[in-house]
Amino acid sequence: MSRNTIVQTTAKILLPFIIMFGAYVVINGADSVGGGFQGGAVISAAFIVRWIIKPDQDIDMRYMKTAERIFLLALVLMGMLFIGQSMGMRYITGRVWMVCINVLIGVKVTCGLTIIFYRFVFFESR
């Protein structure tokens, strides 16, 4: 993969801002535009930018896969907690709960899309 200095430098500068925007979209998804899925997609775009900066450096796929499964499980447990909440057990309420769900969805979507992308880039070839 050939390297282009201008693109790489611009990507290096933009990378933290992309992650910041993604985190903003995830956290404020509860009461403004955005949400877990959109923010997660933005953060996974940051991983694509990382691939542009370092095209030949792989990420450890096993940790990503494990993290995705764990967050899926956490998401299901969170939903069950909500059922319990509706039956009268009030541990957490309202906005906090929304932000938690959004963060979980965001991390899960980030892991999923990043796995798809890196799998496609590094393993599918002629």
Binding site: Q38, A41, L113, F117, R126
Partner: peptide, 27 residues
């Protein structure tokens, strides 16, 4: 529908374009 707009901008414009370009480059 700003929610859908963000999703479309990120997925349609960034992810799928880059995936298509990489697929073209590979094959």
């Amino acid at each position: 529908a700003p929610d859908v707009a963000i999703a479309e901008a990120v997925i349609g414009c960034t992810l799928s374009t880059i995936l298509l370009l990489i697929a073209l480059k590979k094959y």
